[in-house]
């Protein structure tokens, strides 16, 4: 097997495997940029996965399934928003309870959907002439439509964050909400909006598993990808482009392990499973060392905002 023959399918598989993590990580990234930590990603993904699957089975349309997943994910995040923004509850506790709630709720809703096929799922659509570009074509442009959507989303989000005024306000929201307040913007409304959008994206991440990657509903089918997404946001230092690279890196590790086994290279699966977290720690160490002990996390991340305590 030549190098390219090994590399091209590996990278293509890494993109597919990384896409559910990428959607969820982008959602968490927006949420954290708004100053809210939402550890409930795993639960939100599960609810998104089951809602998307149920809607796709009921209507026969994966697009309506996707819509249902967004609404369900947004709804889950709305609970988190009420608890942490309005009631100023501890964000970690609220997020963790969302995981437990989402796991239970999705299992309950999906009881009668286990082991049935979905009428139509998202299947790969080669992107015309782009798919014929040597090397890059088979890696990037022979996927399903949701993968292309994630490419576009990363670019839009990058420009939004770093090149637009509302994006600047979003970054300020996480750094110093009082400054946003002083601008005359409604801090609470903005936080609600971004937390709910974040939940919608996590919901899409879940639906990617149940409608595209492994089209089916199985309880706990996210198998820890929500947690990887949370680690990925830190790995990416709250930057969408780095989140994309990280998602493919984290997603590709399983595929790499499997492919090495096929060509007869033995490497302990335990070491491979460790790598995403090891990379995250390494990035943190590197960043902290370079920025002289300061992590580039949003300054007001995790702190409840109270106008009277300004």
């Amino acid at each position: 097997m030549s190098g390219l023959e090994f590399l091209i399918p590996l990278l293509a598989a890494a993109i597919t495997a990384g896409t559910p993590i990428l959607f969820a990580a982008l959602g968490e990234l927006i949420t954290e940029r708004a100053g809210i930590t939402n550890l409930g990603v795993e639960g939100i993904m599960l609810v998104g996965a089951v809602a998307g699957f149920m809607a796709a089975v009921a209507t026969g349309s994966p697009w309506l399934g996707l819509l249902a997943a967004m609404l369900a994910g947004g709804g889950m995040a709305f609970i988190h928003a009420i608890l942490t923004i309005t009631l100023r509850a501890n964000q970690v506790v609220s997020g963790l309870s969302l995981v437990i709630f989402g796991t239970g709720l999705s299992g309950y809703l999906g009881k009668n959907y286990v082991g049935i096929p979905v009428p139509q799922s998202f299947t790969p659509v080669p992107l015309g002439p782009l798919a014929d570009i040597p090397f890059l074509g088979p890696i990037f442009f022979k996927h399903d439509i949701l993968v292309y959507l994630s490419f576009v989303l990363v670019i839009i989000l990058f420009f939004y964050l770093y090149r637009t005024r509302p994006g600047l306000n979003l970054r300020a929201l996480g750094e110093n909400p009082a400054a946003v307040d002083a601008l005359g913007l409604n801090v609470f409304a903005l936080k609600y909006i971004y937390v709910v959008i974040g939940g919608m994206l996590s919901g899409i991440g879940g639906a990617y598993l149940s409608l595209a990657y492994a089209p089916s509903w199985l309880e706990n089918m996210t198998a820890g990808r929500g947690w990887i997404a949370v680690a990925l946001v830190i790995f990416a230092l709250w930057n969408p482009v780095r989140a994309m690279l990280g998602a493919y890196l984290f997603g590709g590790i399983d595929s790499l392990g499997f492919r090495l086994q096929v060509v007869g290279v033995g490497i302990s699966p335990f070491i491979l499973d460790m790598l995403p977290y090891l990379f995250t720690v390494l990035v943190l160490v590197f960043v902290v060392a370079r920025h002289k002990g300061r992590l580039t996390a949003p300054g007001a991340l995790g702190l409840p905002y109270d106008r009277e305590e300004r």
């Binding site: 495997a17 559910p20 990657y213 492994a214 706990n220 198998a223 399983d254 499997f258 699966p269």
Partner: peptide, 13 residues
């Protein structure tokens, strides 16, 4: 070897 009993996406991969 997948090193997991229960991960539909990884097992499919």
């Amino acid at each position: 070897w997948t090193n997991t009993w229960y991960d539909p996406a990884a097992e499919k991969e």
